[in-house]
Design a protein around this nucleic acid. Structure first.
Lengths: 124, 124
DNA sequence: CACACAGTTCGATCACCGTCAAACTTTGAT
DNA sequence: ATCAAAGTTTGACGGTGATCGAACTGTGTG
């Protein structure tokens, strides 16, 4: 079976795709966690408010945009931030989005637009 | 009746909202055109592939995100890029998104269609 | 081997967003 | 006063994407 999923080359990076990936709060959180951790993290090691299947979807979007690199280690799928390559393609973007501050938006609020509260969606 | 729509203050800028505004190619194009023109542009002076009502919608989104400032001038509604304020809230973001190249993004970059040289409303 | 673990695939649902056309409003010019 | 120009408002519509649960697959460990 395929052990390593397809990753785009730096020359294939597309701004539109990268933005569509980073506009989602959950995905931006993943990238931020990878950035501040300074180390690779397994899919299950992130603090995100969604189920496993949804998480898989988010990782796929990030990978296909070129923001992260995925590889297997045992039964775990590890995720690495492709910082150098993203910086090369879009200088300043990551810093502006996951920077230490992102001043002006002191909103820890999830800004949940779609996500039903983890508890009881009740009706959908 | 001097119709001046509501504009958010810099302190109210929200990264999520700004990103949602800039993820749309049409809106990013509007911002890019404003940036490269270096002058304010009337709603009808942009090179965008959508109808008037849709354009109105896009301008509203940009304005509510704090990216542009709108004011009337005769029957025309002028649009000004709030560059300084956006830069203050999110340093590097505009440069990264509408910067010189934005490599990897297949953006035709519509030959700097110079808008009708509006006067100098100054202020902002 | 057998089981638990980590993640993927699939199908369905639901919200939101971008889009348009038509009717309306406001302002400037004739 | 009329007309034209420039946007806005409204209502409808379709597509896309985020989400979930359930079933499934591959991998290491006991």
């Amino acid at each position: 079976m395929e052990r390593t999923p397809p990753h785009p080359d730096v020359s294939e990076f597309d701004l539109q795709r990268v933005l569509e990936a980073l506009v989602d709060p959950v995905r931006r959180s993943i990238v931020a966690q990878l950035g501040s951790a300074g180390a690779d993290i397994a899919c299950g090691g992130f603090d995100i408010p969604v189920g496993k299947s949804t998480a898989t979807h988010h990782f796929k979007v990030l990978r296909e945009a070129g923001l992260i690199r995925q590889y297997y280690r045992g039964t775990s799928r590890m995720n690495a931030l492709r910082r150098a390559e993203v910086d090369q393609a879009f200088p300043g973007l990551l810093d502006a989005l996951t920077g230490p501050h992102t001043a002006g938006s002191p909103h820890p609020e999830p800004t949940v637009r779609h996500a039903p509260p983890a508890g009881r969606p009740a009706a959908r």
